[in-house]
């Protein structure tokens, strides 16, 4: 099995995550789509690390995880705040900033 299969899997997961972001309206699900995209990237990083025999790829994946954790904290806090005031978790309800 060629190692690039991992990359193919990463690509498929990334595309599914992106599609989720575009099609789902529940803010939490949208957020999970973003997480899925980040994880797909991580898989690609890890695979590239293996291909090139260099641990830097894994370090970068590690950083992505840390940043994603921070992002989740802030993002979910925002969602909670919005839900508290608007009683809704739909991203379509937050559309006041328009032309």
């Amino acid at each position: 099995m060629p190692i690039t299969n991992y990359l193919v899997l990463a690509g498929i997961l990334f595309a599914i995550g992106a599609t989720t972001v575009m099609l789902r309206r529940n803010a939490i699900v949208v957020f999970m789509g973003v997480e899925l995209m980040l994880n797909a990237t991580n898989l690609a990083f890890v695979t590239f690390a293996r291909i090139h025999g260099d641990l830097t790829g894994q370090v970068l994946a590690f950083f992505v995880m840390v940043v994603a954790a921070a992002e989740v904290v802030v993002g979910l806090a925002i969602i909670v705040t919005i839900f508290r005031t608007r009683r809704s978790a739909s991203v379509d309800d937050v559309n006041l900033l328009k032309g």
């Binding site: 840390v66 954790a69 921070a70 904290v73 802030v74 979910l76 806090a77 925002i78 705040t81």
Partner: peptide, 13 residues
């Protein structure tokens, strides 16, 4: 960044 994010979570909620 992590410390900041933790603070942000506190402030936002």
């Amino acid at each position: 960044l992590l410390v900041t994010a933790a603070l942000a979570g506190l402030v936002l909620t």
